[in-house]
Design a protein around this nucleic acid. Sequence first.
DNA 1: ATATTTTTTGCAAGAAATTGCACAATGATG
DNA 2: CATCATTGTGCAATTTCTTGCAAAAAATAT
Lengths: 247, 247
Amino acid sequence: MLKTERQAYILRQIDLHNRILSSDLSNEINVSEDTIRRDLNELADMDKIIKVHGGALSKSFHSSFLKSDVYKADSKRVIASKAVSLIRNNMFILTTGGTTVIEMARLLPSDLNATFFTGSIPAAHEYAQHPNIEVIFLGDKISKSSQIAVGGEAISKIAGIKADLCIMGINAIDETGITDNDWEVIQVKKAMIQAAEKTVILSISEKLNTHQRLTICGLDEIDTIITELDPSNPVFEPYKKEGITIL
Amino acid sequence: MLKTERQAYILRQIDLHNRILSSDLSNEINVSEDTIRRDLNELADMDKIIKVHGGALSKSFHSSFLKSDVYKADSKRVIASKAVSLIRNNMFILTTGGTTVIEMARLLPSDLNATFFTGSIPAAHEYAQHPNIEVIFLGDKISKSSQIAVGGEAISKIAGIKADLCIMGINAIDETGITDNDWEVIQVKKAMIQAAEKTVILSISEKLNTHQRLTICGLDEIDTIITELDPSNPVFEPYKKEGITIL
DNA sequence: ATATTTTTTGCAAGAAATTGCACAATGATG
DNA sequence: CATCATTGTGCAATTTCTTGCAAAAAATAT
């Protein structure tokens, strides 16, 4: 096998699988690993692949490793603006914290008149910047990790509210429902869902079909899911089947 | 699985869920926790994540508040450090908001163990950064102008506390006492003074011998005044005569 | 066609990297 | 302060990498 041929083969494999091991290639085309290594080094010098210890990666892989905050911020802004469209004047709205919710707070139209309840310090801070909306902080002990109020006092305060909407940023959702990994946070989120007439989930699409260890609620308690994707996307099928609205 | 791949996976998980546990990752991708820990350390060295005991946090998640330059920051830092000297372990402390108080929050020694009650969003946020102190937010409606919780709920919550110390930033003080110009804020501050055994006033010297239109309390309810000036300064004579300690 | 040069390949040995384990130190928590 | 989990460190086993070198193959010259 000619060297050029071999390198073309390697490139094709990397394009196909996004990654390759030196040892695998050596077995597949019966040359020593030294040769493979030399090939990979040459291809890497030509900027065609990314060489790593033990093999190589496709260049497109690099983009995901060099995480772009911009892309994510864009997604979240899309989600936030969809969420804003659900909010009407004089609503009582319960919200969690999270970057997506904060983004939403920034996008609220300045003539909006509504009352927001939250236990999240950053969210409350953001709402407080708004000229017209009323902010009620559901105070109690502040959880260090999540910067939200947790504990019985907060929960019983939430239970005493009859909200029109609960707008909730989440960590993971799949067919079994919403899950999270912080017990105290879960208690608060459960209470919020109970206290609101409708529950709206904000989630970037990457969190769809992932799960964590503790359950907040099943899909039957959710009314709407908002992601940055088009609602017609097939990934939403299982959720639509449960009667959930996708925005 | 290649090391680079694994680290990319870890980054993605952290981006997705904002936080992860070393043990979870170890289970998910079947490598020892040692390896995970080494990965997390490397990613933390690259400033891509924040390593914490037991796992890691997303970088974007935590740094949400921007620190702005404050007027007379130097003076306020002097005041703050004097105030810190009054705080002992296991105290229950009520505080208001205000830049001086925030400055104090930043100067709290990291081994301090105490419980702080506050109705101020920026102050609560600052306390929440501290490793050991417990933060209780006295939630209720958030006043836009002052970013603190006001209203009956907050006040009755304060009334239910027996605090060792009330550390209060103020707007104006003279021989007649402390004054302010926001009616809702005054209600909260009055309640705080009532609920604490001792009241400490933080004030830059500019505010001495000024007054505003609404009275919070007379000098007899104040135990200590802290300014950036030396306590021997003659300007304090009228306050010393009332039995107030000057720091 | 044969010799010479150049390129490529495989091999060996030492260096470096990766991973898992044991153990002591440190940190969390009640 | 006592217990338990997490962490850092040193170590060993394994794998991968680098380097130098010589044989093999290919290209080129004579």
